[in-house]
Amino acid sequence: MRHLLTLRETSESDIRFLLDTATALKEILQRPVKKVPTLRGRAMVTCFYENSTRTRTSFEMAAKIMSAEAINIAVAQSSVAKGESLKDTVRTLQALQADCLVVRHPSSGAAHFIASQVRIPVVNAGDGRHEHPTQGLLDLFTIRQIKGELQGLEVAIVGDIAHSRVARSNIWGLTRMGARVRLVGPRTLLPADVDRLPVQVYTDLRSGLEGVDVVNVLRLQTERMEKGLLPSLREYSRLFGISVQSLRVARPDVLVLHPGPMNRGVEISDEVADGACGVRSAVEEQVTNGVAVRMAVLYLLMGGGGMSGQD
């Protein structure tokens, strides 16, 4: 594995390696001195063409705990504003001797394109509506940690599936690890030919949540409404909002995830977000686990000779 671009193209054994490594590395986060020397002298460059303080900070934490330099290119103020092409920008970063590029870009496939242009490992930190593999991994990690294993679990992904890279990474990662995936959302937010994905599709929340072990709630971008894909947030919230009430049909030990940032009162109620009223919400653990998973990714990709025992 040279890059991490998608979970669709990541093998079960690589996913397992990353989750196991993240489990081992998470221990470091609990130490008083959160630092290991593993990646000393290495430089991870984050290059975000879309704002995302959360993801970028998580990668920076991961790099710094592993003793790598974490350098952020403030894209908006840099050469992009001067019309430099993505190809030239990433080649320049490589020439500056970066050891790993972490890229967020609004265009689907941008990470693939960058990987084709440079010799150093590329981590996709979200490309358009395509994939967000480290988010997918941290969701798998969180579910596995709390539920014990992924095999056989029934997981509902609820909300704006069409525009969601988190949904796509979850679908491929979860199904590869043996979980069953349901997609739940209004017809206008489901992608074309959705029934050809390895999932079950529901446009009714109640039947979609019936008997599920895990609910992954997607963020609803409010501009979806402005583009005429939804009548109103109020109606969306009533039909698809995750509340203590709507979770009643799920399994009693149902686990709720949300990639953040949350729109409380829209796709998720306050009680569910805060894990009140007996709801098992893992929203904060997801953030911590994100650092552990990204440490594992950097450990795997920035090593000298690929993975031991595999090619």
């Binding site: 390696f17 196991d20 590395l25 020397p37 450990y299 090593g303 000298g304 000779g305 690929g306």
Partner: peptide
Amino acid sequence: IGLYRDDYAHRPTVPIAPS
């Protein structure tokens, strides 16, 4: 001791077991 090795740059990445 996988995370503390001084030959990380030159050898294949090994799985890390929890300490």
